[in-house]
Design a protein around this nucleic acid. Structure first.
Lengths: 340, 340
DNA sequence: CTGTTAGCGCGTTCAC
DNA sequence: GTGAACGCGCTAACAG
């Protein structure tokens, strides 16, 4: 049960290890007799030879692995949709994906950096998470990435350093088109369910909503921002007070999908009709959006797309020294049943 | 911008590379003067030395990577919950996770096997998918895994070979406790929404449901199995015909979460009250189960648990030659609002 | 033109 | 505590 090495193939084919390497890698500029080639090929096949990736990596100084790290739970859609995009770009290029931890060790840097230093991965894709943004570690991380010229992309961080690659979501746009969509449906009055996390992302969304109302010439005091996280009941009270007015032109904008579902739940429980009595839109999609009752209209985040894009940017960075890139991807409305 | 090797550390500390290795790895049985040790440690820190994992792997003949492969989409909960369990077990042990493809290449075997042959991964965790079960590739795969003694675990395959590790879900149990739960709530009449995929998993579920009814002494003809995939409308017709009888003792059992949500949607649309008019239970959970209207009761699949378990089994296999293991994990009811 | 020899990359570990 | 061999594949320089 011994491993087959290039030496074994060489012996079997009656040639040297060098020849084996040349043939198997189809090296240009080295001419080898077709029959020798054939011998090597069949020997390799007969022995079921597979070159050791570690030896190759050691020699080539490339592991052909990309690390993906985030503080997010790996079962969040917010993570997996992005991962899927990353995978779809990297796999065809022969890069494998290594799931990395974003925990900071005692040495003062996160595990994925250790992986990079140890050359287990050739580059790093970093996906943001509220905590990681909040704690302002981003500055530190970006500084390291920049100083050591580590091939990497910050995903959804909305970070300002001009020297690191960033692929972000245009939350302003997401909020804007969401509100715009509602305005087209006659909405003049809105309760905005906010996570209260007060991140750039959330602020941008709200700014987008405000802008759309402003451009439509609607009074801005009709937008009520509620910090649902702080006081869950308050959201429900605000919605009910709006409903009590019996106006057909009111709506709920949910900053997070979860809040959208919660709102639907509450409205259903109270017996209101959606979208007749009140319309609902969520500023993020979900694979369950078309399974809710009623099916939830959403301004969808381009998660899969930022995954793809960031992987593409990273590949470009790996192939040649390019200037840092800063990209924002727009959102897209998927109209379903909670809006008119 | 050159890489720091153990040689550099050795020079800096004024010792040999061997000593560096001994000190940094804390090798037992080798006595080294505390002050020498100190010198090496500080030199390593000053130079910011990180051993090359590829060189280590080459030498130790271990990559400290586990491959996870499935035909499933990486953004399915069915995949990610398991992945999370795997991660939670492997990470503390120093194993990284490599996401592998389950696509079969022209050489007649799947990519993850190639990774193993190339020693990029030390072991393989295989997660089933309907297609992979259907096409009966499992036999072929299991044969290879067995013949070459590849450290691996088949997850949720319900495969019969006694020579490969298997960690499965007890679907019979899931169906049984689901039905039992309903029976306790007075249910005597059931429409079972089936995926029609006709896999062992689905058959076992139905068997479990039947068994529970049988043991309760309920008439078995009250269980109507509907292949929702084949004819989506039929499910809705059956449900409506049951509702037309105006009996308070009927229920829907959804084989897939998706069908549960669809049923809720239909019932809500038609204006029925859940659970008063009809009860609903799903034979699989979801992170959205407590966001539906009403919140969906479920007999939950132990996805996170099989992830953990299979990783544990794999680790055991890697550490010592152990006999193949066959494990089935039970399901668990989470009562919510769609049942009385 | 075809194929070989030898050394490299980097950390581990045995024999001294 | 050290020197040297080793694991495995790649590739520059070289020989037939």
């Amino acid at each position: 049960m011994k491993r087959v090495s290039s030496n074994d193939v060489a012996k079997e084919a009656g040639v040297s290890r060098a020849t084996v390497s040349y043939v198997l890698n189809n090296v240009q500029g080295v001419r080898i007799k077709p029959e020798t080639k054939e011998k090597v090929l069949t020997a390799a096949k007969r022995l079921n030879y597979h070159p050791d990736s570690m030896a190759v990596a050691l020699k080539r100084n490339r592991s052909m692995c990309i690390g993906v790290a985030s503080r997010r739970d790996i079962d969040e859609e917010r993570y997996t949709k992005v991962l899927k995009g990353i995978r779809d770009v990297l796999a065809p290029k022969g890069y494998a994906i290594l799931i990395c931890s974003d925990e900071w060790n005692d040495k003062g840097y996160p595990e994925y950096l250790q992986y990079y230093y140890r050359k287990r991965i050739d580059g790093i894709l970093l996906l943001s998470h509220i905590e990681s943004i909040r704690e302002q570690e981003t500055e530190k991380v970006a500084a390291i990435l920049r100083k050591e010229k580590i091939p990497s992309v910050l995903i959804d961080y909305h970070h300002n350093s001009p020297m690191v690659n960033c692929v972000d979501i245009n939350y302003f746009h997401g909020g804007y088109i969401g509100a715009e969509f509602l305005i087209q449906k006659g909405v003049t009055q809105v309760v905005y369910l906010d996570s209260g996390t007060n991140t750039i992302q959330e602020k941008e969304r709200i700014r987008g909503v405000r802008k759309a109302f402003e451009e439509a010439g609607r009074e801005m005091d009709r937008i009520t921002i509620v910090d649902v996280r702080e006081d869950r009941e308050e959201g429900s009270r605000r919605i009910q007070s709006i409903l009590a007015e019996h106006r057909p032109d009111s709506a709920i904008i949910a900053g997070w999908v979860r809040y959208g579902f919660c709102a639907l739940n509450m409205l259903n429980t109270l017996g209101y009709r959606i979208p007749q009595d009140i319309q609902v839109i969520s500023l993020a999609g979900s694979s369950f959006s078309d399974l809710s009752y009623p099916r939830l209209t959403a301004s969808e985040l381009p998660l899969y797309e930022i995954g793809k894009k960031s992987a593409e940017v990273l590949l470009a960075t790996l192939e040649e020294e390019v200037l840092p890139v800063r990209i924002q991807l727009p959102c897209r409305i998927t109209a379903r049943e909670t809006t008119k």
